[in-house]
């Protein structure tokens, strides 16, 4: 680690952007330090996924800055960000549908490394039993698990997960939470978009609430009551 002991590993400020001329996210800011999880909450349509895509380089910033490990990420394409240690699991189309489960896991690694995936296969045996099947035949929740495993097993220092629990069965959501606690304990930083409030509060140290493309509430998770947060997410 060369990011300094106390400073945040990843920070973004004044991030504004959207699709074409349309601005979806306005002046969003936040940060995560190693060993810490930050959850982004909010109703659907408030710009959470757009913010993730702005942070991971899939959409250009209209203004603002994104810094990782003291370095500006401005203009870096997604694959270069990945090389620096930003691991991103998107919300939609989270896996390569026409590749097998095995190919999804070994795309950037020479072979299935038993040591690397063993704990995941133990927790999610469905993956191991579907190794040769194409990922497109998995259910929505199974695809999210595959994407989650691919991301968490990588060595990057920052994990960006966009709604990892969407469509996943409750028992598997709990297993995911377990892996995320381990990742935090190992000093990795997590930035997670979630809809499942219980899951989010289980892992979050920090919370960012968005509405209308803006950050409307931010702070330590311990300072927020579940009722306050639910009010922002429920109808």
């Amino acid at each position: 680690m060369n990011g300094g002991v106390s400073g945040p590993l990843f920070s973004f400020s004044n991030v504004t952007g959207g699709y074409g001329a349309t601005t979806v996210v306005r002046s969003a800011g936040g940060e995560v330090s190693p060993g810490e999880a930050c959850c982004i909450l909010g109703r659907n349509g408030v710009g959470k996924t757009t913010l993730m895509r702005l942070l991971t380089g899939h959409l250009p910033l209209q203004s603002g800055s994104v810094r990782f490990d003291g370095q500006s990420l401005d203009g870096l394409p997604p694959d270069r960000r990945h090389a620096l240690g930003l691991i991103y699991c998107p919300q939609e189309r989270p896996v390569f549908d026409n590749l097998s489960v095995r190919e999804n896991l070994t795309l950037m690694a020479p072979a299935i490394d038993e040591g690397r995936y063993a704990p995941f296969f133990a927790a999610f045996p469905i993956l191991e039993s579907r190794m040769t099947q194409s990922a497109g035949t998995l259910s929505g929740g199974e695809r999210k698990i595959l994407s989650f495993v691919r991301g968490v097993a990588e060595a990057g220092r920052l994990l960006l997960l966009d709604e990892p629990s969407e469509g996943v069965q409750q028992e598997n959501v709990e297993r995911m939470a377990g892996f995320l606690h381990e990742a935090k304990a190992a000093g990795r930083a997590l930035l997670i978009v979630e809809q499942n409030l219980a899951f989010a509060l289980d892992i979050a140290d920090r919370v960012i609430v968005m509405d209308h493309g803006e950050v409307v509430l931010a702070g330590a998770a311990a300072d927020m009551t579940e009722e306050t947060l639910a009010a922002h997410m429920h109808v």
Binding site: R43, S165, Q170, E194, Q195, N196, L197, A198, F199, E226, A230, M233, H234, V235
Partner: peptide, 16 residues
Amino acid sequence: IQADERVRAVYVGASA
């Protein structure tokens, strides 16, 4: 709708 538990479950997730 605001009082509907099924809707709440969909929006906020199965709350513990």
